[in-house]
Structures are given as C-alpha cells and as structure tokens.
Amino acid sequence: MCELYLLRQLAAFKEYGTLSEAAERLYLSQPALSRNMRKLEEEIGVPLFVRSRNKLELNENGILTAELARKALSEIDGIAKQVRDFDRSRRTISLGVCAPAPIWKLTPLLSQLYPTMTIQTEITEETELLEGLHNGQYQLIVLHFHPEDKHYISTACGTEKLFFSLPPTHRLANEAALSFSDLDGESFLLMSEIGFWHDMAVRKMPHSRFLIQNDRFTFDEIVNASVLPSFSTDTANEFFGNSSDRIQVPITDEEAEVRYFLVCLKENDKQFGQLYKVL
C-alpha cells in the first residue's frame, strides 16, 4: 500500500508541473522530493517518470497514477472532514436565528442547560434556516412565524416590538404612534446583521435610504450625535439599555411586533426536551 504522503507529493508534482515548484509548495528540498518519487515507483512497481539530465516528467503511468491519487485523496479528505464535523456536532449546539434578539435570551440559557457544549450562533434568512435544520447545519433555529410541519417541534420563545427612535427635534417626535409610511422617504441609521428586520424596513419604506453601521458601539455613538431617525426594539433597549435622549415612538403596522418560535426536528426531541420545558 502506498503511503499517503507520497501520493500527495505526486499529486502536487502533477499540479505544479516541475520538481522545483512542487518542492517549494511542499516545503521540501528537490533531492528529498526526487527520492520520494523513486520510492513511490518502487512501491507501485512500474516507472512513473521520464527522466532526463535536467528534467523530470510524468509518463503515461505517472499521469494516471497522479489522477487516481488526486481522486483518492479527495475522498480521504472528505472522510476526515465528515468525522471532524460529526465530532464537533456532538460538542456544539448550532443555533440559527432570524434576528439578534433570540440570541440574547437563548445563548445564556443553552450555556446553563448544556454546560459542556459550545454554543454557535448565526443570523440568516428563514428559508436558509429551515434548509440548514434539515441538512444538519443547525440543531435549533428561531423563526418569527410558527412553522406548520409535522417534522418540527416548536414553541414560542419571546416577542419583540419595533419602534422608531427619533431625536427630540424631529418633526414627528411628539406623535403617540407612527406607521412606516409616515417616515418613508427619510434617511435612517441602521445596524447591520439584524435579520428579517432589515428586509422589513426596506420593504415597508421603499423610498428611504438606510445608512448601515457594522459596529454596535459606533452605531450608538452616531445615533447619539445624529439628527437622523433610527430604529430600536423593546428587547434591544432592555438588553443594551437606552442611554440616549431619543424618543421611542411605537410603530402601528402589524408587522412591527413579532413572536419568535424555537424550532428543532422531532428526532432531536430528547436532546432538547429540557430546553423546551424551561421555555
């Protein structure tokens, strides 16, 4: 049986074309690589190279062997990745969410209930969350609607209400409540990575311009110094605090208040039964 390192070196030789280039990429000396290729020929039992004074080339045997080696190594690497992914899945709970707020509540709870597990979170679109739940990318997901599917177990895990966050000098700051259409067309400060809230704002306010900030600290500093409106939620205010002098005006549109649902596959009921009982 050929040693894997010899097959990797042969595949590298074919990929890079010359002994010197392959040796450099493999962090080997040329003589060492040349010796290893001779060893590989001895193990296989047929010549793989055409040798001249200053050149080493693959013959037809070598070309075939290099291609078979590439395919075999790809399969072996794939096996190794699957095993590592499986091992990581046994030590990691992957939580996919449609917005940041569920992370703030669920991550501490998961850490408390499953102290030996690493909690991994990701915010993405809900179609991708459902797909990821089925393909094993996530063990748990949070949606802002109740999924009607017999393969799922779901339970409500919180609510969140969106507000306009207006400077006191804003023309509508004294209103008791406003709709999206009331401020459509104004420029807004907006945090990135807010999940479906971003898509909702863009859809409900098609004439507005959104100035995206990636860092929470920077966003808060700009909001405190700016006359532009922004958004806030009751959950974010509870989690981060509301230190600015801005006025929080409720949004009257039905979509501005959501209920979150924690979802897992029925086959994982035993693993997360304790979590669902707490919720």
Score class of each variant (00 low, 15 high):
Asn61Trp: 00
Ala66Asp: 03
Ser52Thr: 15
Arg38Ile: 12
Ile63Trp: 08
Gly62Glu: 02
Leu40Val: 01
Glu42Tyr: 02
Leu58His: 05
Met37Cys: 04
Arg51His: 07
Ile44Phe: 00
Lys55His: 12
Glu41Trp: 03
Gly62Asp: 03
Glu57Lys: 14
Glu42Phe: 03
Met37Asn: 06
Glu67Asp: 14
Leu48Arg: 05
Glu43Val: 05
Leu68Cys: 07
Arg53Lys: 13
Ile44Lys: 00
Arg51Phe: 08
Ile63Ser: 11
Val46Ile: 09
Leu68Met: 07
Arg38Thr: 14
Val50Asn: 14
Ala66Asn: 07
Lys55Arg: 15
Leu48Met: 03
Val46Pro: 01
Asn61Ala: 02
Val46Lys: 08
Arg38Pro: 04
Thr65Val: 10
Arg38Phe: 06
Glu60Asp: 14
Phe49Arg: 09
Arg53Val: 14
Leu58Met: 11
Asn61Glu: 04
Gly62Met: 03
Leu48Val: 04
Asn59Tyr: 04
Phe49Ile: 06
Ala69Ser: 15
Arg70Trp: 11
Phe49Met: 11
Lys39His: 12
Asn61Ile: 02
Asn59Met: 05
Glu57Phe: 09
Lys39Gly: 06
Glu57Leu: 14
Glu57Cys: 12
Leu68Val: 03
Glu67Asn: 14
Ile44Val: 01
Phe49Asn: 04
Gly62Val: 02
Leu68His: 07
Arg38Gln: 14
Leu68Lys: 07
Asn59Ser: 08
Gly45Asp: 00
Glu41Pro: 00
Asn59Ile: 05
Ala69Trp: 04
Leu64Pro: 04
Ala69Asn: 04
Glu41Ile: 01
Glu67Arg: 14
Val46Gln: 06
Arg38Val: 11
Asn54His: 13
Pro47Thr: 03
Glu42Thr: 04
Lys55Gly: 10
Asn59His: 05
Phe49Cys: 05
Gly45Lys: 00
Arg51Thr: 12
